Amino acid sequence: MSKPENTSKQATGRRKNGTFAKGQTGNPGGRPGNLAKLRAKLTAGSDEVASVVLDAAKAGDMQACRLILERIVPALKPIAEPVAFALDDTDLPSTARSIMRAIANGTLPSDQGKALLDAVLGMARVVEVAELEQQLIELRGLVEADR
């Protein structure tokens, strides 16, 4: 018994590997032509919808209140106050230890401490790359000198 041919791929303009043949599309109908009309209707009725939602919120509908507040009043973002603490910046491990000490003492909030420790880690990576680059330059110089 022979294997039946997959006519669905041929009908959609697909090749045997599943990709579309050149000039074929996965959406032969294209965009719906009434999209502009639909947007115009929604825009035309938006004032009425807004007034209905506002009236519902005034009447005590908590979902309507929530909808209005979510769209009008932006969510508050936490703002951290500046914190002063002793920072030993002689080297990166000393800097990290002083940050950890400030967190442990309660001088520095843990979220700010984490952000600072992440910055120290980023700085350590930058220093590491710079040191590796310098070592590579020195090695290249030694190899060229031996030639």
Rank of each mutant, 00 (worst) to 15 (best):
N34S: 06
K37H: 09
L38P: 01
L38H: 14
A40L: 06
K41P: 00
K41A: 05
K41C: 01
L42A: 05
L42D: 07
T43I: 03
T43S: 12
A44G: 03
A44L: 02
A44S: 08
G45C: 02
S46T: 04
S46V: 00
D47E: 12
V49I: 11
A50I: 03
S51C: 00
V52R: 15
V52G: 05
V52A: 14
L54M: 11
L54R: 15
A56F: 03
A56L: 13
A57D: 05
D61E: 04
M62V: 07
M62A: 13
A64D: 05
C65E: 13
R66K: 13
L67S: 12
L67T: 10
L67I: 01
I68R: 10
I68D: 03
E70F: 02
E70N: 12
E70A: 01
E70K: 11
I72P: 04
I72C: 08
I72N: 12
I72W: 14
V73E: 07
P74V: 01
A75D: 09
K77Q: 12
E81I: 01
E81T: 11
P82S: 14
P82R: 15
V83A: 13
V83M: 07
V83L: 04
V83H: 12
A84P: 01
F85L: 04
F85R: 12
A86W: 04
A86I: 01
A86G: 02
L87S: 11
D88H: 08
D88K: 03
D88I: 00
D88W: 06
D91K: 12
L92K: 13
T95F: 07
A96C: 06
R97K: 12
R97Q: 12
M100E: 15
R101M: 02
A102T: 10
I103Y: 07
I103Q: 15
I103G: 10
A104C: 06
A104T: 08
A104L: 07
N105H: 13
N105I: 00
N105A: 13
G106K: 13
T107E: 15
P109F: 11
P109L: 05
P109D: 15
P109E: 11
P109C: 07
S110I: 02
K114Y: 06
K114M: 03
K114A: 07
A115M: 09
D118Q: 04
D118T: 02
A119G: 10
V120D: 04
L121D: 14
L121Y: 15
G122I: 00
M123K: 15
V126D: 03
E128P: 00
V129I: 04
V129P: 00
A130C: 00
A130W: 03
